[in-house]
């Protein structure tokens, strides 16, 4: 199995430890992953801003970079969702179709492809799980409150398998955090308010460590947590599952 790691630009630049944890976690699971150095971005920021046409060269570069791998794994469901759903704008060559199908969010890859449901290790903290919309509603990695009252999902199961962990019961299990890519600056007021409300739900219900599988939402939430100087740590799920302590 040839697996490539896709590390989105903001993770590369601001959260390298998340890329490291992803790589190490995959290695522990017996899957060595390679990081093709010529990778850049999936093009989502442009496309979501209404500039899909300008994103096409980025899409093509992405496909060229990853077409020779069996899987492309990223610690960010949002990028994966974009590749799967919106690369339909490219001519659907065999390579394009292959890359669209080969792109996996890390947690999805662990659960669906590797079929791993439990992980060894302990994390004796109260953990609040932030469900990112593109992973949850877009890639169906977790149940949606619009459809069912049952709170279940891939990451919830993996986290629950750690010893000593307690998962926070939120009032609003899957409300959007308000990041939304360029939305976070073009609608900065609403974006911030949504993030503050999401963090308040975690504070109210006792979260010590806030986690999720999409670093973009977590970057936004961490910005709010740090501004309010709250005693709450924000960690990507790959770090927790890789055995890091807060």
């Amino acid at each position: 199995m040839k697996v490539a790691l896709f590390v989105p630009c903001y993770i590369d630049q601001f959260y390298p430890q998340v890329g490291v944890a992803t790589l190490q976690l995959l290695e522990k699971l017996g899957v060595p992953a390679y990081f093709p150095a010529q990778q850049t971005c999936c093009g989502q920021p442009l496309a979501n801003s209404g500039c899909e046409r300008d994103a096409l060269p980025i899409y093509k570069h992405f496909v060229r970079t990853f077409q020779d791998y069996d899987y492309v794994v990223a610690p960010s469901g949002s990028c994966v969702y974009h590749v799967r759903k919106h690369f339909d704008k490219l001519e659907q060559t065999a390579e394009v179709q292959h890359v669209r199908g080969a792109a996996y969010d890390l947690i999805d890859f662990i659960s669906t492809v590797l079929q791993v449901e439990t992980l060894p290790g302990a994390f004796p903290h109260k953990v609040g799980l932030h469900l990112s919309c593109h992973g949850q509603r877009g890639l169906h990695q977790a149940n949606e409150s619009e459809l069912t009252p049952v709170r279940d999902g891939q990451l919830r199961r993996l986290l629950a398998s750690l010893d000593g962990i307690e998962l926070t019961h939120l009032n609003r299990n899957d409300e959007c955090c308000g990041f939304g890519g360029t939305f976070c600056v073009s609608e900065a007021g609403i974006s911030a308010r949504m993030g503050q409300d999401r963090v308040a739900d975690h504070v109210r219900n006792g979260t010590q460590v806030l986690t999720g599988s999409d670093m973009s939402c977590l970057m936004h939430l961490e910005g709010i947590v740090r501004r309010a100087q709250l005693p709450m740590r924000v960690m990507h799920a790959a770090e927790i599952l890789n055995g890091l302590t807060p």
Binding site: Y15, A188, G189, Q196, H220, G223, I224
Partner: peptide
């Protein structure tokens, strides 16, 4: 606009 309500990542 990011920084009105949020810290930038370190």
């Amino acid at each position: 606009a990011w920084a009105v309500a949020r810290e930038l990542p370190e």
